[in-house]
């Protein structure tokens, strides 16, 4: 029984990872792509690891759970660092973007 549930959870994780990758290809600029990549790939990978926990349990399951926690903590941090670095080095937002308060505030600082 736990084997079937594990495989179902792993399949869900793979599906979310797939959506994340489609987002990486389809979305227009780095910031939007990071959105797709972090959200879907984080949950997708966590679900795969959770599936491993349900499927195998024991030592491997404990390690899978720890890895899931590490990914939950580090993946958004990494995305934040990438987005900030991209913005600081002058990567423009997609032309369809509505506003960029971050760039506005940075210009204000330069004027002063």
């Amino acid at each position: 029984m736990s084997e079937i549930i594990g495989i179902v959870v792993i399949s869900m994780g793979v599906a979310f990872d797939l959506f994340g990758c489609i987002g990486l290809v389809r979305l227009p600029d780095i910031y939007n792509r990071l959105q797709g990549a972090t959200k879907c790939v984080t949950l997708g990978t966590c679900l795969i690891l959770l599936g491993v926990l349900i499927h195998s349990g024991g030592a491997m399951g404990a390690k899978a759970l720890l890895c899931a926690i590490f990914i939950l903590l580090t993946s958004p941090t990494g995305a934040h660092a990438l987005a900030r670095g991209a913005h600081k080095s002058g990567v423009k937002l997609w032309e369809g973007s509505v506003m960029d308060k971050y760039a506005d505030d940075k210009e204000g600082e330069l004027d002063r």
Binding site: F19, I22, G23, R26, L27, P28, D29, Y31, N32, G36, H87, L93, W94, G96, S97, V98, M99, D100, K101, Y102, A103
Partner: peptide
């Protein structure tokens, strides 16, 4: 992502 027209309206707030 799967929507054909991609309903996004991005920006930094």
């Amino acid at each position: 992502v799967l929507h054909p027209e991609m309903p996004i309206r991005p920006g930094i707030v």
